[in-house]
């Protein structure tokens, strides 16, 4: 599969090699996963005080509270999922549109999970 449009003269002049869409798709999907996990942890920590305490244990006594765990786990899951997807798809042509939409929907659900009027519905 080629992604270049040879009818664009200024690009033809640059002589760019074609690139597979796998790494791009991985970036879109992993970003969605990251934001989804952020929202999920935010909402779940309202449901379970035990989880809230566990997330708070990530703050090394600095007084950050549960946000320390939510943000740390989110970043780890995002990086690990990105690295895994990137490694799996780096030479492949994955359907990037599909992964963009998956990432977008995951991100929208994640943002909803961070919205106080929503997560307070689940307050334990």
């Amino acid at each position: 599969m080629t992604h270049r449009d040879s009818n664009i003269p200024e690009l033809a002049e640059l002589g760019l090699a074609d690139k597979p869409d796998g790494p791009g798709a991985a970036a879109f999907l992993a970003a969605g996963i990251g934001v989804f996990v952020l929202g999920l942890l935010t909402t779940l920590s309202e449901v379970s005080s035990g989880l809230g305490s566990f997330l708070g244990s990530f703050d090394f006594g600095l007084g950050v509270g549960a946000l320390a765990g939510k943000s740390t786990i989110t970043v780890i899951v995002w990086l690990v999922s990105w690295a895994g997807l990137h490694a799996a798809w780096k030479d492949k042509d994955v359907d990037i549109r599909k992964m963009f939409w998956w990432g977008l929907w995951l991100g929208i659900v994640g943002v909803l999970g961070t919205f106080p009027p929503f997560f307070e519905l689940f307050k334990g």
Binding site: E10, P23, G24, G34
Partner: peptide, 27 residues
């Protein structure tokens, strides 16, 4: 909470821009 979404999304965008570079013009 929402603040933490910004660097994740900005990093993904920066990666995509560098990865595709001028190829984005054709797509």
């Amino acid at each position: 909470h929402i603040g933490w979404a910004a660097p994740i999304l900005a990093t993904a965008a920066a990666f995509l821009i560098v990865y595709y570079g001028p190829r984005l013009i054709a797509r």
